[in-house]
Design a protein around this nucleic acid. Sequence first.
DNA 1: ACGTTTTCTGGAATGAGTCAAGAAAAGTGC
DNA 2: GCACTTTTCTTGACTCATTCCAGAAAACGT
Lengths: 139, 139
Amino acid sequence: MDSEQLLRQHGLRVTRQRLAVLAVLDEGGHPTVDEIVRRARERVGSLSTQAVYNVLTALDDVGLARRVEPSGSHARFESRTGDNHHHVVCRDCGAVEDVDCAVGEVPCLEAAQHHGFVIDEAEVTYWGRCPRCQQNPLP
Amino acid sequence: MDSEQLLRQHGLRVTRQRLAVLAVLDEGGHPTVDEIVRRARERVGSLSTQAVYNVLTALDDVGLARRVEPSGSHARFESRTGDNHHHVVCRDCGAVEDVDCAVGEVPCLEAAQHHGFVIDEAEVTYWGRCPRCQQNPLP
DNA sequence: ACGTTTTCTGGAATGAGTCAAGAAAAGTGC
DNA sequence: GCACTTTTCTTGACTCATTCCAGAAAACGT
């Protein structure tokens, strides 16, 4: 399925800017907004920062992108959606990697107490040190 | 155990500012920095915002406070530490409540893949709508 | 108390993210 | 294709949580 069809399927107009951002996200990883701006700009020549925010918000709304924002980091985005996977984050450098859900399809939704909340998602963040940072002495 | 002893035990000097912030945190809840500044300032008369940031960082470093920062929210702090409990967050109003760990003492530390990371904490955030917001129509 | 070290104050600076209005482009029907 | 309507993009100003810095004040050990 190409990006153009995906956009139409979700009721979004097809624009150069959106295709560029989708292309960057399809390269994988967990780029920050800043990185997305830079890499998408390379693809289309010129592109405003605001447009990238608009696009990312739109993509997030329809489920074509997912916002990931670990404590203390800036917003990151990824294109892998719908499988409720989780993330490992490096305390030192902020690197993010995907982790499949260990529990199953719709996991940990069973909170011990829900305080009357209607819960629709359980987000797990694993904190640690990445291989690269393990080679450096602790601060 | 009073706050003064707690501070000394962790190698921190005892100051009016630190005692005020600890007192606010001891009242429970998950106040934002802004709220902490306001409420701590009521206790000591005058208090700089920067001092509150310093104190909170120091308390977090030694484990007397814990920083909670759900995606899209500003930093919040709580005094309940060391039991690896989790949080439910309201998507609409941002309200935060505690949730005991459903899995056990040292939970979900078994990530399906760790990518070479050395993991030391698993943080779970449940997303949903709080009782109050459930009474309002969806946006 | 004295001196040393840590902490607090006050003010300026940073920077991610948001807001708003007009210009440009996308989709629709003729 | 061409004109029309609606959405999206650009530009630039703006907000505000958080950080940085240097001097003043307070805490602790002797």
